[in-house]
Write a protein that binds this DNA or RNA. Structure first.
Length: 518
RNA sequence: GGCAGGGUAGCUCAGCUGGUUAGAGCACGGCACUCAUAAUGCCGGGGUCGCGGGUUCGAGUCCCGCCCCUGCUACCA
């Protein structure tokens, strides 16, 4: 039993939760629940990134204060997470006082330990008054901002605090090479190594032009007070959530894993570790980068009309089926697609037919042939294969072979298939007709119930609701979530009383409207 | 442009250091069975392994060229 601190990216408070947010949270939730099944002391952090210009602008457009704006959005995320069954332990918001205190403490700590790591520098760039931000060369056409061509870009000079990121180049290279598990999957690690080869530039740590954020703890030499640059505000949430700088934060920090999307790899694997090193704090143990959920192979895009209504997708077959589909179909180390057709295929083939029907046929047979009482004495036949699958399952969920959640599900479905094959081969319905085969019949039924019980537990991290339903239906003691993976192979269902409930994953009526498109 | 990773059955993908008739799941067709959610099991059809050269007794697997796709190429979060 160990401690396990897992985090997801904090979501930017400028819109509603979408499938990309959901995918990451569901994946992290599976890992968190898996660790709880092992008896680990899990702490699962989720949160909101609520500072920055975009939020302030959005609020201004609506005539609200930034705080009103984010107070409105945060509950919408929380509601979605509870709908999706995300078992987070803490929901942090960067507007919380404790977070702001923590950020300032972290920066001060860098000033204390490595005073040279912050320095003042002037930054010159083209500034668009319309956007209220500096523009990159690629965003400028004919000397004008592409978004506000009627305005003239101004050459503006701003003096900021800079963080000496370049100093940590070799340190980071060592981290990447000496700790290959620090950043995964490997493709992302290679990208970051390539970035290091190019050489790191220092980054600004404060901004003058907006105030919706954490006041930077040190004034410039001219006395001006600036606002902490967004990433110096956002990234530390993982640390401030532990209570930092208050005593006791070390009980939780460092995080065991940061689960993030590929678009923010650099911030989490380069800037964040450099900040921590500068503050002389331990680095997170690993950063896992997942891909994006595409829609029919295309990126979701409001302008192109490529979108998916989360509530509609959840309503289609229920939360558990949605969780299953996303994690089965979208590899957790790469991009994948959501399509309604695929969703329906997976639901019917994997959930209704293979898994749901297995539960249904086994429970029915126990009711019919042994009066609902699970016989004692399991057969050894399926046991060895189950055991080897269980260890593969574990390796894909504990990170030792990468967090390949889709592979873990594939393994679980091997057990489902094996159970169906076993039933077909031993034909308990035929054994039931021969009084002389009573002993065989009982063994076969007990073995099938044992496999189902194992499945209920293995599937629990992915589909907690359905797992409990199945566990109850089998008459297992307590709840599925209280089981322990280590005990799974010793599981003996002898004496349990099964109860046939409604179908776990009801097949759709053929007459149901054939849905397609969006 | 540079760097990295890909292009294998209708779909999603396995195929380690080159070696018998190229595999899995889903979809599709047939058969068996009846405990089950018309479910399950078994069998089967289906691929010029991106294109063109080359090395080799032998290449999806190595080399060269070309075509196409994706990611990264740093301060919007």
């Amino acid at each position: 039993m160990g401690k396990f601190y897992i985090t997801t990216a904090i979501d930017y408070a400028n819109g509603d939760p979408h499938i990309g947010h959901a995918y990451e949270k569901i994946g992290a939730d599976v890992i968190a629940r898996f660790h709880r099944l092992r008896g680990d002391d899990v702490h699962f952090l989720i949160g909101m990134d609520e500072h920055g210009q975009t939020v302030a602008q959005k609020a201004a457009e609506r005539g609200l204060t930034p705080q009103q704006q984010v107070d409105e959005i945060a509950p919408r995320f929380r509601d979605m997470w509870s709908t999706l069954g995300i078992s987070y332990d803490q929901f942090i918001r960067t507007t919380e006082e404790a977070h702001k205190t923590g950020v300032r403490a972290l920066i001060k700590r860098i000033f204390d330990n490595n005073p040279d790591d912050f320095y003042e520098k002037s930054y010159r760039g083209l500034y668009c008054i319309g956007c209220e931000s500096f523009k990159q060369a690629s965003e400028v056409v004919d000397g004008r901002c592409v978004l506000h061509p009627s305005r003239v870009l101004e050459q503006v000079e701003e003096r900021n605090w800079f963080f000496r990121l370049s100093k940590y180049q070799e340190f980071l290279r060592r981290v990447f090479t000496e700790r290959p598990e620090f950043l995964q999957p490997e493709s992302k690690r290679n990208e970051m190594l390539a970035l290091l080869d190019q050489g790191l530039e220092d980054i600004s740590a404060s901004r003058a032009r907006f105030t919706w954020g954490v006041p930077f703890p040190a004034p410039l030499s001219n006395g001006e007070h600036q606002t902490t640059y967004v990433w110096f505000d956002a990234l530390p949430n993982y640390l401030t959530a532990t209570g930092f700088p208050a005593k006791g934060y070390r009980d939780r920090w460092p995080a065991d894993v940061h689960i993030i999307g590929k678009d923010i790899t650099r911030f989490h694997s380069i800037i964040w570790p450099a900040m921590l090193q500068a503050a002389e704090l331990p680095l997170p143990r690993r950063v896992w980068v997942h891909g994006f959920v595409l829609f029919g192979g295309e990126k979701f895009s409001k302008t192109a009309g490529v979108r998916l209504d989360l509530d509609e997708a959840i309503a289609r077959f229920g939360v558990d089926a949605f969780r299953y589909f996303l994690l089965r179909e979208v590899p957790f180390d790469a991009d994948g697609s959501f399509t309604w057709e695929r969703f329906e295929e997976r639901y019917t083939a994997d959930l209704a037919n293979a898994f749901g029907n297995l539960a249904s046929r086994v429970v029915t047979m126990v009711e019919k042939y042994t009066g609902g009482l699970v016989p004692a004495g399991v057969a050894p036949e399926t046991h060895a294969a189950d055991a080897s699958d269980l260890s593969a399952y574990t390796a894909f969920l504990d990170g030792s072979r990468g967090y390949l959640l889709h592979e873990a599900l594939r393994i679980v479905w091997n057990i489902v298939t094996r159970a169906n094959e076993y039933a077909q081969r031993r034909q308990p319905w035929a054994l039931a007709k021969e009084p002389a085969s009573r002993g065989d019949l009982e063994q076969v039924l007990a073995s099938l119930v044992r496999q189902l019980a194992r499945l209920a537990v293995l599937v629990f991290p992915f589909m907690p609701g359905k797992a409990e339903e199945l566990w109850q239906s089998l008459g297992g003691p307590g709840r599925a979530q209280d089981q322990r993976l280590e005990a799974l192979l010793r599981l003996d269902p002898g004496g349990w009383r099964v109860v046939k409930g409604p179908a776990l994953f009801p097949r759709e009526q053929p007459s149901a409207k054939a849905s397609s498109g969006r």
